[in-house]
Design a binder for these strands. Structure first.
Lengths: 239, 239
DNA sequence: TATGGATCCATA
DNA sequence: TATGGATCCATA
């Protein structure tokens, strides 16, 4: 798989020059580079999306890519995924006002923050959280918001979102995260550095190496998640 | 439908005391109150979720609720939904840095912001955007982020998200937006008031009036969106 | 084609 | 039960 670029949204306290970050970045770039298809080929080759006779698109599922990334990070790169950074709802219950009573109101925080895809410690101890984002694009917003909050609370010092390029996006499950649809919001997240003593927020963009229109080349498996059955049924009807 | 509370995340420049806001709030509270089921009953009664023999849950679809809200806002309340606030990608292309080159980088903004569910002008001219959030909870994050950016850019002066209570949430399509799962993030959005001269960001929580376990009482229609077919097929298999 | 959405799944 | 996710839909 091809790494395209890493965007630094903000950085405070020298994390950018630290081995914590430098080593981690090199490491996860290797883990990305090793994601290949067919397995062992050394390159990530994907069949292009194709419109079927019934008007539906055939595309690649996303589970394989994520599984390979985590496999490489834990195996080859030797990172130990530590306990989830359980963002306890500490100090995040906001003091608001109710309308129209104008009464002060503290909305109870009744949900916990779930974990990140990958949480570990850098070579010098910085806490790191990485999100591999191939869920829905709206899920990328939650991921970025969560990373920003974890940085603000000092629970992590490095937060990374890995996201498909717009070009890759087109050949994966419809509406997955992609850098294009995040681009208009980057400025907002970049503005969340205020008050952070030590922290770095980055977005890394990835892409396939090759595309093919070879009809004999299988798509990456599509899971049963989401509305899969809906599409499968249509496919069967068209058979 | 029952209004539970309206939370003011932030307010600047006196919007809170303006008729723009006061009139709008009264108006959309009326529009919410009129959402009923069965139609004409004056109360929103929903059948409780039920676990089927195959382990799956039966729940209410969400399209009806949103349609009724918009119907009341446009019809009874007389609001004219104006052209979408097309958040043009102005001044939001962030100045970032690339790593490891450290080169300055301006990520091109290659996606436009889509519209809001409802956009109009207040009685004194304030621009208003309302989001009725019954999409996936992650979609609520995008909605809130978008409202915050529109307020920061001065394109709107009032931004409102209407979202189900946790109690209502349980009886609707799995994983729709709900106040509980947003609660840990409210503080973040409340902090985005910086630099805004005139603007208000609010979250309004709504709920059903009544629940029933009557098996003869129909669920609100479930659409073909998402993974609907998947569930339907399971249902058929169990028949 | 592009964006917001609705739906059900997987797993701790 | 709760949270993050994967999938396909509707519509301008």
């Amino acid at each position: 798989m091809k790494w395209l670029r890493t965007l630094i949204l903000f950085e405070r306290g020298g994390v950018l020059e630290s081995p914590d970050w430098g080593d981690l970045h090199q490491s996860y770039l290797r883990a990305i580079a090793k994601i290949d298809n067919p397995r062992g080929s050394g390159r990530l080759k994907l069949r292009e999306k194709v419109r079927q006779p019934n008007g539906q698109w055939s595309r690649n599922g996303v589970n394989y890519l994520k599984a390979r990334f985590l496999e490489h990070m834990k195996g080859d790169e030797g990172w130990l995924p530590e306990g989830l950074v359980q963002l306890k709802s500490e100090a995040i219950s906001p003091e608001l006002r109710l309308y129209p009573s104008m009464m002060p109101h503290r909305e109870p925080v009744t949900s916990t923050f779930g974990g990140f895809d990958f949480v570990t410690s850098g070579t010098q101890g910085a806490k790191v959280a990485i999100e591999w984002e191939t869920g829905n694009i709206s899920s990328s917003h939650r991921s970025m918001n969560k990373l920003a909050i974890a940085l603000q609370l000092g629970i992590i010092q490095v937060g990374v979102l890995i996201v498909p390029s717009r070009s890759l996006y087109q050949h994966l499950t419809d509406r997955v995260g992609n850098i294009s649809e995040l681009s208009g919001y980057l400025n907002m997240w970049a503005g969340m550095a205020t008050g952070i003593e030590r922290g770095l927020l980055a977005v890394t963009v990835v892409e396939h190496d090759d595309l093919t229109v070879d009809e004999a080349f299988p798509y990456l498996t599509v899971g049963m998640d989401g509305r899969a059955e809906q599409g499968r049924k249509k496919g069967r009807l068209a058979e």
